[in-house]
Design a protein around this nucleic acid. Structure first.
Lengths: 70, 70
DNA sequence: GATTTTTGTCAACTATATATGACATTTTTA
DNA sequence: TAAAAATGTCATATATAGTTGACAAAAATC
């Protein structure tokens, strides 16, 4: 399950409520949660703030650099 | 000076080289460095990787919550 | 199990990120 | 200090992010 969805549910918010908080349409939240696109940086930041999180937590896939040096 | 610019220079890259690495036009890099817009998440991620950094370091302004409770 | 709320999704539209080409200005290098 | 490279910026074009309205499916509540 998508991270935004997990964090939104953790905060007890509906898509409509989160959309309102960050100032976009509900469909936009829905598309992001279903990995159907590529939000703008400003929207990512608004989401991170609304979910009391940060960019790395929500949007950064840590590249695993360990175990490559053989 | 803008963070992208600082990190790019630290890596010894020109706008053209960075643009090529992340697959956008030079003007796009230039606009971002001059805070003239709002890149997409995928571009932010490409930039973070190209500059061997991460999203928080490059794009997150830490909100200062201390010193507000008086 | 019927009602209400929430979510997934479609189609059509608008706003804006990004591309391309060009040129002036600034900075670097010879 | 002249030439070359890098940067700032403009104007036009295109791709896509984000909107709006609507409806069906799924989940929650009564």
């Amino acid at each position: 399950m998508n991270k935004i969805k997990v964090y939104r549910k953790y905060r007890g918010l509906t898509q409509i409520e989160l959309a309102k908080q960050v100032g976009v349409a509900r469909q936009t939240i829905n598309l992001i949660e279903n990995n159907k696109y590529n939000p703008s940086l400003s929207l990512c930041i608004a989401l991170a703030k609304a979910l009391e999180s940060d960019l790395n937590t929500l949007f950064w896939e840590e590249i695993d650099n360990e175990g490559q040096n053989t």
